[in-house]
């Protein structure tokens, strides 16, 4: 079997196991948290009577193990279940219907930020390696490290202040809905995407720079330089192909972050992504929604890491054609 196919199959199998473990961990963690859905929703106005009636209605009066088995049985048949919220009414809220539009928004924002951030980070990284220790290198380093060091909400407020309030180029609210057109979605999501770009760019840029500089000390690069090949060509054609593995790993890590870690940006810009949904679901102990979000997040990590590994293999002939 070809090593790529084997890796993919192996990883996918392990991935499924990971998802299973994640679901158990999340479920038990939610069970261990004090309070339940009814208490969380009714808040200060909860009385033992109303809480009991509420729990009965959503089936929370049954043992945890029964609920878990039922839930996982549904998942295996592709049914993510219904949210506890609104469970008493005729119209059930299916978790998949709740999550789908928000997941779309989250991926939209993540892709938009990635499309800006990844090429920019790689270019800056290569240039910084090319002109290392120059003024350019120092400026790029200090600027990107500054933006990563600042908290996301602060970066967001600063951008909002200049681009939404003073210059009025963009919207201060990123509320989008199903009726929003593609172009409007882009302009609404512009400030959050720029914020995220500023937050993730340093990591990728630094890794690109470091990986290339690391290779520049190796004998084959020295040989290329001695042959008289221009520095630019040495870096792009000789060093970069061998530097892909570490870079891709970092890129994958940051892309995963764009999907799972942007709740602060969502709140500040009022962008209806999946992060806010998960936070609300956790604080109200809405187990089916929390589980679905957790599985999506875990799957995102697994798949992105898998792609990073595959790219590392493809770019490395020794791994691609093993003897």
């Amino acid at each position: 079997m070809h090593p790529i196919v084997r890796t993919v199959l192996q990883r996918l199998g392990l991935g499924l196991l990971t998802l299973f473990i994640v679901s158990i961990v999340i479920f038990s963690a939610l069970e261990m948290l004090p309070g339940g859905f009814a208490e969380a929703i009714l808040g200060q106005s909860a009385t033992p009577e109303t809480v009991a009636a509420f729990n009965k209605e959503i089936g929370l009066d049954r043992p945890a193990i029964v609920r878990y088995v039922e839930w996982i049985g549904g998942i295996l048949q592709g049914d993510f279940g219904t949210s506890y919220a609104g469970a008493g009414g005729n119209i059930k809220r299916h978790v998949s219907d709740l999550i789908a539009p928000r997941l779309y928004n989250t991926f939209f924002l993540a892709i938009m930020a990635a499309v800006i951030a990844v090429p920019l980070a790689l270019t800056l990284g290569v240039l910084a390696a090319l002109y290392r220790n120059s003024l350019f290198d120092r400026i790029v380093n200090s600027v990107t490290l500054t933006t990563i060091a600042l908290p996301e909400f602060f970066v967001a407020y600063v951008l909002m202040f200049f681009f939404a309030i003073k210059l009025r180029w963009f919207y201060s609210l990123s509320t989008v809905s199903e009726s929003t057109t593609f172009l409007e979605h882009i302009s609404r999501a512009a400030l959050p995407a720029i914020t995220l770009t500023l937050v993730i760019i340093a990591h990728m840029m630094r890794m690109t720079r470091a990986a290339i500089i690391n290779l520049l000390a190796s004998p084959y690069i020295e040989m290329a330089q001695l042959k008289g090949i221009p520095r630019r060509r040495v870096i792009v054609h000789h060093a970069l192909p061998n530097a892909w593995a570490p870079i891709v790993t970092v890129v994958a890590f940051n892309l995963a972050y764009l999907v799972v870690g942007v709740v602060v940006v969502e709140v500040v810009f009022v962008y209806p992504g999946i992060g806010q949904m998960m936070v609300d679901a956790v604080s109200s102990r809405d187990m089916p929604v929390v589980q679905a979000c957790a599985l999506i997040f875990a799957a995102t990590y697994i798949l992105l890491n898998l792609s990073a590994d595959i790219i590392s293999i493809i770019t490395n002939p020794r791994l691609l054609h093993p003897r």
């Binding site: 202040f161 939404a164 309030i165 919207y171 201060s172 609210l173 709140v267 009022v270």
Partner: peptide
Amino acid sequence: MLSIIDVTARTNALNTGEI
């Protein structure tokens, strides 16, 4: 009606005329 939990976001929205 918009649910804007973050008070700074709410203030900015009022300042920019979005609400």
